[in-house]
Nucleic acid binder design. Structure first.
Lengths: 127, 127
DNA sequence: ATCATGTTCAACCATATGGTTAAATATAGC
DNA sequence: GCTATATTTAACCATATGGTTGAACATGAT
């Protein structure tokens, strides 16, 4: 059912691996934008921005509607959903960890006054 | 609080944008693996696999524990959580769409037999 | 028809990426 | 110490990526 086409995921994640492109997606999250609109915020040529847009388009992340001489882009969330589903496989890894932490905090604070608990560096976590 | 370090997201998404590396993560989801273990399934040199592992490590996706002469790798889900949080911003786009579809199906199927409905224009959808 | 606007295309460049092989490093075992 | 095992490093190669500039294309406006 949920097909994890690895070639598609390659292009999707690759498209997301660039701050300029993520910013373009963020912009498109608020509505349609022309190529020029999308390019405007960035200190690069229009041609460069156009390439980024094509990368997003190739990944299926945006659709393009040519209206006269302007190309109007809009977000297509489907590939993001694919990426999310792939990530979903791993979600238990951090929810488990958070659940454990939460449980730990709950038992620690049971009966004791609400002191800010010195969480032992969940950064350098050893097991 | 939840910092969206765009440089970090660059490296995380870049690391995820390769099927070999995603397969390595999938393997690590079942437990610790040595570099050799991780490299074994792939038709590439150990040196190439080692590079992939370093990309994953640079993204913070895996940790490395050097035990004698073998380097034991394990999954670190924190960057995946970051990626998930970034994606979360867009989650409404597909949940909204699915909700709308669901509602549509519910009204359509009220009284009518469950026929496969012609979904209007989710046309970016291949497969 | 002319001119301006929005966008792409082509050629080019520097750097990054993903792979190779061969040599180097570190540790384990005899 | 010697040898085998686990892994990295170095040098190299082909291709991809992200940027540039300048020309081309398509459409809108006069």
């Amino acid at each position: 059912m949920v097909e994890h086409d690895s070639l598609a995921l390659d292009t999707i994640f690759h498209a997301l691996g660039d701050a300029t492109r993520r910013a373009m997606l963020a912009e498109l999250a608020t509505g349609e934008r022309s190529v020029g609109d999308l390019a405007a915020p960035f200190a690069m040529s229009l041609a460069a921005a156009s390439k980024h847009i094509k990368v997003l388009e190739a990944a299926g992340l945006i659709r393009r509607d040519v209206r006269g001489r302007t190309h109007v882009c809009s977000l297509d969330p489907a590939p993001l959903m694919s990426a999310d589903q792939w990530l979903g496989i791993y979600r238990r890894f951090w929810t488990d960890r958070l659940d454990t932490l939460e449980a730990l905090l709950r038992t620690k604070s049971a009966g004791t006054p609400p002191v800010k608990p010195p969480i032992p560096g969940n950064k350098g976590e050893k097991r």
